[in-house]
Structure formats: C-alpha cells, structure tokens
Computed example of a mutant assay.
Amino acid sequence: MSGLWVALATLALGAVIGVVHLRRGGRMRDVGGERLPERSPGEKPEKPSGGLTERLTERLTGADLGEGLGERATLVQFSTAFCQPCRATRRILADVSTLVPGVSHVEIDAESRLDLVRRLDIMRTPTVLVLDAAGTVVKRASGQPRKADVLAAVADALPPG
C-alpha cells in the first residue's frame, strides 16, 4: 500500500514540474541591470559581485554574432542541430524579422560557439535574445516563444518614435 502512495506522489510531483516547465518555457523576460562598460574583443567581462540576482546587461557586436546587427533591433537565436523547437522558433523569428522593418534574425549554432554560450549563460536551446539597435540585450526567452511575445519584445527594443 505504501508503494502505491509513493508512486502517486511521484506522479503528482512530475505533473507539477511539467506544468511549471511548460508555463515558463518561451516566456520573454526583461534583462535588467546596469550597462556593461565597453571592452575590447577577447577581454573577459567582470563577474557581478551581488550573486545571481544582480545581472549586468550584455552588449553584443556584429563581430560577436558573425553578422551585422539589425538597423533597429536584432533577434538572436541559439540552436542545436537536433532541437525540434528550434525549427519552429526559426520560423517565428524569420516571420517577425520580415514583418518589422529594420529587424534582423541571426541564428547561432550553440555547439560551435561555446565561448558565446558561456559568456551569455545559455542553458538550453532554443534561447532567444532581443537586442536593441546598439546591441544591448533587452529581452531573453529560453524555450520556444510565441510570435505575439516576440513582437511585443521587439516593440520594447525599438527606439521611441
């Protein structure tokens, strides 16, 4: 009888974890913090001193991405070869970059750019970063985002006016 209770508790815990994972996956989050000082290529960023909750805003350049930044905003997608949600995310981001003038989409193979993956603390694919015109990361999503969320994140990244 106690084995049945253990099995039911395990199933309930698994269901709760699954629901939380589904609800959080793909949601665009603000990337808060102060702006990083300019640094030369290859120079390592300083680590934040205040623990995990204190984050510095990262700035990426065309050299970091291997392509130029978008005129108004850039959607950066970290993918891997066998990631099924990455394919759907690629279509969503391509649609958004077509719909919004001056927005470009850059896809980066996470396995070939481990330096950038570590620098940006990418833990899963797909991960989407929304950059403003200067290359500052303003929004971030881990998992497949919804198109409406990406459009709203791009609108937040665009300069006023």
Rank of each mutant, 00 (worst) to 15 (best):
S40W: 02
E43H: 00
A148G: 06
A133E: 08
H21F: 12
L93H: 01
F78P: 04
L13M: 10
R118D: 11
G66F: 13
V150K: 06
E38A: 14
L13R: 04
L93D: 08
A15T: 11
G70V: 03
E71K: 12
T98G: 15
P145Q: 10
F82L: 13
V16H: 00
E71H: 09
A148E: 15
A73K: 01
S2A: 10
G18C: 04
K44C: 00
Q77P: 04
T89Q: 04
E111Q: 09
G51R: 11
P37L: 11
R118V: 05
D149I: 06
E43R: 04
D115T: 14
G25E: 13
G33L: 01
W5A: 13
E54W: 06
L129R: 07
T10K: 01
L52H: 10
A81P: 02
V137F: 01
L114K: 15
V106I: 15
R55S: 10
G18H: 10
S104I: 12
G62V: 14
E67W: 02
R24F: 01
P41H: 05
P37E: 13
T127Y: 13
P85L: 13
R23L: 15
D156I: 00
R90Q: 13
V150E: 14
T74K: 03
R39W: 02
L11V: 15
D64P: 08
A88H: 09
A153P: 07
V128Q: 05
R24L: 08
Q144C: 03
A81L: 08
R29L: 11
E34A: 15
L4M: 06
L52S: 12
R24C: 00
G25C: 09
G33Q: 03
L60T: 14
I17N: 00
M28K: 02
E38T: 06
L151P: 03
K47Q: 14
A88R: 14
V117W: 07
I92D: 13
I92A: 07
I122G: 11
E71S: 09
S79H: 11
A110K: 05
A157S: 05
M1C: 04
L116E: 11
Q144D: 03
C83G: 05
R146L: 12
E107W: 08
L158C: 09
R90N: 04
G42Y: 02
T10I: 15
A63D: 15
E58F: 12
P160A: 15
E43A: 12
A153M: 05
S112N: 12
A152V: 03
G33K: 07
D109T: 08
G32D: 03
W5P: 00
T98Y: 02
W5K: 05
G161N: 11
D156M: 05
S112V: 06
R27S: 12
D149T: 11
E38D: 10
V138I: 09
G135Q: 10
V103P: 06
A12F: 15
G32K: 10
P41T: 02
G42A: 02
E54Q: 15
V100F: 05
R23D: 05
A12G: 12
G3Y: 14
V20D: 00
